[in-house]
Design a protein around this nucleic acid. Structure first.
Lengths: 232, 232
DNA sequence: AATAATCATTTGTCCTACAAAGAATGTTTT
DNA sequence: AAAACATTCTTTGTAGGACAAATGATTATT
């Protein structure tokens, strides 16, 4: 019986090798990759194949190639998601995708909220309070506050020191963000009240209230549950 | 004052052109792109440059190139994004990251298990039973059964029809897989019993037992909780 | 008519060559 | 000696040609 899974195309293998090289050697932003010639020899592929791999990485923002200088590793950020991939998500099916991603974010935040509650320090809570204040201020000036909303949630989970969780939440946020910018934001006032309810509960160190506020935050404004947080 | 932003590299221009072609012409999954030769002429670039653009798209899962056939547009999915997000999240602290990813998988599976329980059909449960049988058989022959383990869990959540969740679970599985293959698998026998406990509960349509089995599945063998599932 | 062989098309891989941009070095000028 | 300029070297950018491999269509064979 022969091998079922044909080997991947060379440029994909090269891509994985280079990605692995960056990770295994702990290359950071600004560090130089070996030259194309050197990588060709090391990996045993032609310069074309190698470039197909590297150009893919460059397009995604992982590295940047400069003639005469070399190829430097860039800070990995998720911009490429909406710049290079997200636009692909047009059509009706992608509404479903966004909805699913939002659902996963909800599940993750609810699953980790008790850990977060324990890990949060006074400083973290203060940061969240400032975010909430900024959000309210921007809302009154009719400005967008996605960045502050994002900062609010990231501050909530940063103390967990869980890099994977943060990466995931950021990735989902980036996608949500890119889409919500286009469509009108519903129930803005509710969103603001919910954020403040969360901080209030944290400042009082009241876990049940915190859990209720988190739960409410993820339920649509239209289905506003019985007003346990209306007083805020 | 001269132009601040030098013109982009050709492969990036080509990438944008092709992306625009797909969108403007409303190409859907399965549709063919023009041939490389044709695109080279249309865009006025060399085949190298064109391929750097197309291979980037292929790596991100937007299209798939087949020799003798052409390059077809693919269904949009997030597999690539998640895999890279997670892979880059690994960084230097492998052990911690793997542990975090396993934790996220646990949280997600537990969060969605009740939905899964309701969505599962008899056929799905039968597939899981077969996976469990295969796992036991391979275990007795001292073979690896990661693929079957993966199939087991994916079968559990496929009926949810949640593409994002599946992508995410698969991505985590892929990373776990790559790392766990090297290290020895602990508590194998427990793993097998736990899988079978899950299927048993599903076949009896007993949600409490199912939830208990799922919970047990994610607790390490060393911390085996009081034997509610020892009888299996 | 079914099967096998052939051919045409398309992508996969490698190669060479030169252009362009940046860095390092050496030279000239002040 | 220091600064400005010119040269050279290294590295990536772009182009084109050549052939292999895979697929699909066509033709020949049984």
């Amino acid at each position: 019986m022969r091998n079922l899974k044909r080997r991947d195309k060379l440029y994909i293998q090269a891509y994985r090798e280079i990605r692995g090289y960056i990770i295994n050697n702990g290359l950071k932003a600004g560090d130089l990759l070996p030259t194309e010639q050197s990588l060709c020899q090391t990996l045993g592929v032609s310069r074309n194949v190698l470039r197909e791999a590297i150009k893919s990485m460059e397009l995604m923002g992982m590295v940047q190639a400069c003639p005469g200088r070399g190829t430097v590793v860039k800070e990995f950020n998720l911009d490429f998601i909406f710049q290079n991939v997200l636009f692909f998500a047009i059509g009706e099916k992608e509404d479903v995708t966004i909805h699913e991603m939002f659902g996963i974010r909800k599940m993750l935040e609810l699953a980790y909220m008790s850990q977060a509650f324990q890990a949060l320090s006074m400083e973290d809570i203060q940061i969240m309070r400032e975010c909430a204040n900024t959000i309210r201020a921007k809302w009154q000036r009719k400005e967008f506050f996605y960045e502050d909303d994002r900062a609010f949630h990231l501050a909530l989970f940063r103390p967990l020191n869980n890099g994977v969780l943060l990466s995931l939440l950021e990735a989902i946020w980036a996608v949500d963000d890119g889409f919500q910018l286009e469509q009108k934001q519903p129930h803005l006032d509710n969103t603001i009240a919910k954020h403040e309810a969360i901080v209030d509960a944290l400042e009082k160190h009241d876990f049940p209230a915190f859990a209720r506020a988190m739960d409410a935050h993820f339920s649509s404004g239209k289905y506003l549950s019985s007003g346990s947080y209306e007083e805020y």
